[in-house]
Nucleic acid binder design. Structure first.
Lengths: 161, 161
DNA sequence: CTACGTGCAAATCGTTTGCACTACT
DNA sequence: AGTAGTGCAAACGATTTGCACGTAG
């Protein structure tokens, strides 16, 4: 549906509308970010960007990804690792995550009943629900099949955040 | 049910069993941690500990709370703020959290249907569910009643982790 | 007596920021 | 021209760690 060029246009227009200048660095960073439609850390993104223009600094990658979050083009997530992950907000709808503690693969899912239950909980507590965070951790089919085990480090990473 | 002295005994025994020495600092830190049965950051804990013995260092508080997490006496949580919160694992059962984005109050809840739905999602994806994280963010009854609004900083803190 | 625990200060990690310079608009 | 963006290196906040000394066992 929404192809790369079209999305780029959209982001660029939104940036311009906010008086944000469109630099070469931003073009590269945003292009790579949108193109890699999985969960990327700032460091990974910086690394990928460097392969196109080695002179782009980490600071600029951080500044740009933060800009994208601010204008609503990217979502920032913190799974059970030290650094934040980012995902495009334009190419996907609301979803939650399943994280494999063995291979690290992140699967997205939507489950309406869960959303409904959440609203019920909130309502029962007189809470006006505005946002939620929900992550399921475990072992994916593939890892279970090959008899993998959850490394101790994954447990620590999990209970450590 | 489980009173302070009894829990202390339990923790101390578990520590001893692991060949961990029971120092004065640890006695104070653990006592205060167990006594404050809400969500505490390491810094808050350090502050409270200091009021009893000003010489206890932050490093020792960190080392001790990590020890507690390791022996399963404490749970570490990361809500939408920079630092981790800890809660006693002995005085409470499994529960999830409702976080008020206006006043910061954290309410615990248990909702069986949610747990069931989670298992269904995991099963549908061939996932062996081992752990989950679920936090509902919004505005509590009190804040809604007094017409409070969610500060921009809370939104940023939320979307920033 | 001998590890283990402590306080301190320095190191770490991911991320942000001040600065002098560059380049959109 | 003028202001926003850049790279660099230094600053950041939360947490950890190396070290020399102290103390539980």
């Amino acid at each position: 549906m929404t192809d790369l060029a079209q999305i780029m246009q959209q982001v660029r227009d939104e940036a311009r509308r906010r008086g944000v200048r469109w630099t070469n660095q931003r073009q590269i960073i945003v292009e790579i970010f949108i193109a890699s439609n999985d969960h990327v850390t700032a460091e990974e993104l910086h690394h990928r960007v460097r392969s196109i223009d080695a002179s782009v600094s980490a600071a600029t990658v951080y500044r740009t990804i933060n800009l994208l979050v601010e204008i609503g083009v990217a979502h920032k997530r913190h799974f059970s690792s030290g650094s934040a992950s980012f995902e495009s907000a334009l190419t996907k709808n609301h979803h939650d995550h399943l994280v494999c503690m063995s291979c690290g693969v992140i699967t997205e899912f939507v489950h309406e009943p869960l959303e409904i239950q959440q609203n019920e909980v909130a309502q029962a507590h007189g809470f006006q629900l505005l946002h939620h965070r929900m992550e399921l951790y475990g072992m994916c089919r593939t890892c279970t099949a090959r008899g993998a085990t959850v490394p101790a480090s994954a447990w620590h990473a999990l209970t450590d955040r």
